[in-house]
Design a protein around this nucleic acid. Structure first.
Length: 590
DNA sequence: GCCGTTTTCGGCCCGACTGTTTTCAGTCG
């Protein structure tokens, strides 16, 4: 039973309870647990094994005993009772946008839809026969909407289909460029998960400060790349872009814009915690401002700083607004000073075009181009970490020879490089070395003499057991020159799950032997993931943020890795490549 | 069903929009 399966089961319980109209706080409790498990960095089953289920936020005695039964017997009797009388086809229909539990139930009952496989087809058929519009609570319009929602569902444009952060950012920037020139627009901001820099984005959320919302919203829905207008009211609108992505825009007056930014940035649970806190002070929060409950009057706030100040709090960076302790830290005035892009002094995971017969892809830029890019990013140092030579194709002597010549070529070029005289960018001769399935590094021992240090990474056999994988990684990191674990979880967003490993054990090893974990900035990786960054830091582990660039231009992607670090509460002192050259040199060669 | 500086009972965040209604239910974020 994986986390994904448990989450699905709990969401089905939520739907069933909603249909049965039980106490809505019972329903909220299950929702909370499902959300929490979705964000978990460890498997629920492992927590169950260690008798730590109640560490999951929102899990109390009731849900813990249900999970216990689930792992022991494969099912939960209490859930079966909740599901009784509900068609299995209903849970499929819930994936149609805009169709919730109650109306889905009405439809499965009315049309006797039982088979999950044919459920959507049958529904479409009866809608086309104009049978749904005549039902109680339905009408012409809602029937038409349902048909269009079914079409959307078939295209696979459902919520699970998330896009990488940089793509969402690009789409948002186009909209900002389109809206900003309007004289009625005082400010445009990206909000929601995009402002919080979450690794993958579902919908794009934006807000505009304006005194003329009508004009702004009219312009917004006329954006040339809009396929269809989903929602439109006086306070906001939702559209679907031609590329299939949804954008929500909210408007607010400049005087109340701070409250809007705060409200629409989220996260959901950050806001809930904040509102609970406010209630205890006799205040009620909403997107228009803060209401004194007794006086019944809402006071607007132009900036987020002022909004938080009313609650006795410091402004909280959007990246950490996840209800993971930031509210408490803000109240105590002990928020961390998160690391910033300008503090980064070097990039240690860059692939050049030096052909060393690599095991994986070669970069496309020369050593010189990489050095020049480093100059333009004001770096003090870079590490060239090409993939190791392909061991299966080459003899040991050949590899040693390649490595010797590579080191010589780099050094020779460097001594002639024009910027060298100013000593502006130092370099490290590095390598990204595969950790083979048995934990052995894919480089002959003697060849290590020709590198300063290496990044070690998993590039194969991703599905090994947790125990084997953990041993494999620790073996790989044991070589004195193995200083950095590259893209530690090996995940590829949208296409490959993280490997399973005992992260606590890896963190302890790294701390004990002065190894660093990489935060890989590649948009599909963003690995180490933010939650694990936070855990690693809390255990005293150091990190390096790198880009894994395969071309000079990609080195500017460092921002995305910094975003991940910030989401993991990293400050300058945990990120080793914020160190000055001399200090960094001491660590990497130490 | 969960939870505790209102601690084992009695609360639990807040609002927008749509379509169907004649005051509200359902869905979403």
């Amino acid at each position: 039973m994986t986390n994904v399966e448990i989450v699905e089961l709990l969401r089905n319980v939520v739907a069933a309870l909603t249909i049965k109209d039980v106490n809505r706080f019972r329903i909220i409790a299950y929702t909370k647990t499902a959300d929490a498990i979705e964000q978990l960095t460890s498997e629920v089953k492992d927590l169950w094994n260690e008798d730590k289920l109640e560490l999951i936020p929102g899990v109390g005695k009731g849900i813990a005993s249900a999970l216990d039964e689930l792992f022991k017997t494969g099912g939960v009797k209490h859930f079966e009772e909740i599901f009784s009388g509900i068609s299995p086809a209903l849970f499929v229909l819930l994936k149609i946008p805009g169709l919730g539990p109650k109306r889905a139930y009405q439809l499965t009952q009315t049309f006797q839809i039982y088979d999950p496989k044919s459920a959507v087809d049958i529904l479409e058929k009866v809608a086309k026969l104009n049978k749904i519009g005549k039902l109680e609570g339905w009408g012409e319009k809602s029937q038409t909407q349902l048909l269009s929602a079914i079409a959307t569902f078939r295209k696979g444009q459902i919520k699970e289909n998330r896009m990488p952060l940089p793509l969402a950012d690009m789409l948002a920037q186009e909209l900002i460029a389109y809206l900003s020139p309007l004289p009625q627009v005082e400010r445009v901001d990206v909000l929601g998960s995009l402002r919080r820099k979450v690794a993958t984005i579902g919908d794009i959320d934006m807000a505009v400060a304006t005194n003329d919302p009508e004009v702004v919203l009219d312009a917004f829905v006329k954006f040339p790349k809009v396929r269809k207008i989903t929602d439109k009211g006086p306070k906001g609108a939702t559209v679907q872009l031609l590329v299939g992505r949804q954008v929500d825009l909210r408007v607010q007056t400049p005087q109340a814009y701070g409250a809007m930014l705060q409200y629409f940035t989220g996260s959901k649970y950050h806001n809930i915690k904040l509102r609970e806190l406010a209630l205890k002070k006799g205040l009620s929060l909403n997107e228009h401002g803060i209401k004194r409950i007794k006086a019944g009057k809402t006071i607007p706030y132009a900036t987020e700083e002022d909004f938080y100040k009313v609650l006795g709090m410091d402004w909280i960076p959007p990246e950490i607004r996840e209800d993971l302790g930031e509210i408490e830290a803000s109240l105590r005035h002990t928020l961390p000073k998160l690391v910033g892009l300008t503090e980064i002094k070097g990039d240690l995971h860059i692939h050049s075009n030096y052909d060393l017969k690599p095991s994986h892809d070669l970069g496309s830029s020369s050593f010189e181009e990489l050095l020049n890019q480093a100059v333009s990013q004001h770096y003090e140092y870079i590490g060239i970490s090409d993939h190791n030579p392909k061991v299966s194709d080459l003899k040991v002597e050949q590899i040693i020879d390649i490595m010797k010549r590579r080191k010589h070529a780099f050094e020779q070029f460097y001594s002639s490089w024009e910027n060298h005289k100013n000593n502006r960018v130092h370099f490290f001769t590095m390598l990204e070395v595969d950790i083979d399935p048995k934990g052995k590094l894919a480089l002959p021992m003697e060849a290590f003499d020709y590198i300063d240090a290496c990044v070690v990474s998993i590039h194969s056999s991703f599905t090994q057991s947790k125990e084997l994988m953990t041993e494999r990684i620790l073996n790989g990191l044991s070589h004195p020159k193995a200083k950095i674990l590259g893209h530690p979880t090996a995940r590829l967003l949208g296409s490959r799950e993280s490997i399973e490993a005992d992260w606590d054990k890896i963190f302890q090893f790294c701390k004990a032997y002065n190894k660093a974990l990489e935060i890989n900035s590649w948009p599909e990786r963003l690995d180490l993931p933010d939650r694990l960054v936070k855990e690693a830091i809390s255990q005293g582990v150091k990190l390096v943020i790198s880009t894994d660039s395969h071309a000079a231009g990609q080195m500017s992607g460092m921002q995305y890795g910094v975003d991940v670090a910030r989401r993991g509460w990293a400050t300058k002192k945990e990120i080793l490549n914020t160190l000055e050259y001399n200090e960094f040199n001491t660590w990497i060669k130490g």
